[in-house]
Design a protein around this nucleic acid. Sequence first.
DNA 1: CGGACGTTTCGGTCTCGGCCGAAACGTGCC
DNA 2: GGCACGTTTCGGCCGAGACCGAAACGTCCG
Lengths: 235, 235
Amino acid sequence: MDVDTAAVAAVIADPARATMLDALLAGEALTAGELAHAAGVAPSTASEHLRRLRAADLVEVVSAGRHRYHRLAGPDVAAALEALARISPRRTDLARSLRRVRADAALTYARTCYDHLAGTVGVALLDSLVAADRLAWRDGALRLGPDGGAWLTALDMDIERLRSSRRPLLRPCLDWTTRRPHLAGALGAAVTEHALASGWVARRTRGHRALRVTSAGRDAFRDHLGCALPPPPAT
Amino acid sequence: MDVDTAAVAAVIADPARATMLDALLAGEALTAGELAHAAGVAPSTASEHLRRLRAADLVEVVSAGRHRYHRLAGPDVAAALEALARISPRRTDLARSLRRVRADAALTYARTCYDHLAGTVGVALLDSLVAADRLAWRDGALRLGPDGGAWLTALDMDIERLRSSRRPLLRPCLDWTTRRPHLAGALGAAVTEHALASGWVARRTRGHRALRVTSAGRDAFRDHLGCALPPPPAT
DNA sequence: CGGACGTTTCGGTCTCGGCCGAAACGTGCC
DNA sequence: GGCACGTTTCGGCCGAGACCGAAACGTCCG
């Protein structure tokens, strides 16, 4: 073996750390304290965990005053976590089965995957963009389609800035729940940021991945993204 | 969190088990003894490990006389392992750096990923099949192209049998080394089986993933698969 | 400057699990 | 039937690491 898979797996293998990583999959950077709370451990314990996560390059940190904000180290980390989720057993947490079923349905419908949209909504979005010739598949890779430039301009996206990031502009990301690709890459992140900032979608709970599509968002998806969303799950 | 990521990660986190999984990524089913040898542990220890791997549904077993053959439980498991490999640190095993570099080059050029071809050769193959209209991308999924049926018939592939398997016929699998898709799914496995059986490619070492393309294979890739292979790495 | 607060370091405890060898089990072969 | 061999189970040893509280550190703010 040329790489040390066991080492990374060992870092993810602790329940507290796995919970922290899951919280970070929402894409927001969280403080050490918030992560300690999310994982249900003492701050000192969380600090140890974060040290290991940083050492393994799964998480990176940016200091801001007396807070230290942590976020996933990159899209590859998010992809690996989602791939692991696909083969993980369902949690048999009998106590809250009803709440869990609802949370499952919400996650399947709309969630963030690191920094882009996933779930039914994410998949529908990519499908619509391809159908409208704004994006196109070529050789298994996503490219801008004939009408892509005009669309980005209409959305006020600075394509040059997006292109200049080290990250690929367009990348498909295999959806853990639907098993179909959704839009990732720098553009996927930008669109998602736009949707959150414009109030098209909102987090159901701060620091959690599940999203709610607002009624304004439903219209905006139709008008600006050319995407007729399927109805959300009953809550 | 709706699934128990930490539990699966814990199973992969042990070096002995990770080594076993890596050996199984070659796609062959191996006996408990062979896996014990590969991992460098006593048979009794390996037996424990295999019990955990089975319990976690990462590995499945088929009994044959007094041997018990183990193999990966499915393509999802292989995909998760490759995703983990992408974010794993290189092993800093100074003692055998030269041998390692050579092994790296061989793996990058041609290897199996569970039961289909990966590496430069796998990616080139998928590209050629798409270029020749034998396969086609549609909505991010792989489909048979206009000339796909004729090609399969020429290769003596029983497409009905392939379709009847529970597994998707065509699936892209993101390559860990090249970061481009190669051909997976039932057809990917069938083509790979055909290539191994016909001696187009051969394992460099039994039970290991690296492949060598034979000179007959190089011709066959050109004539039967329409794929001009790039030159292999110097050994 | 001094107190409040977020974070990290340190020391001590305790549980989990990996390791082996010995022995039991089951299958194939003579 | 009896032996050989692959595999599993069991018991005992041992190290890694997860946890917490106390204390140190650094930053912000009054």
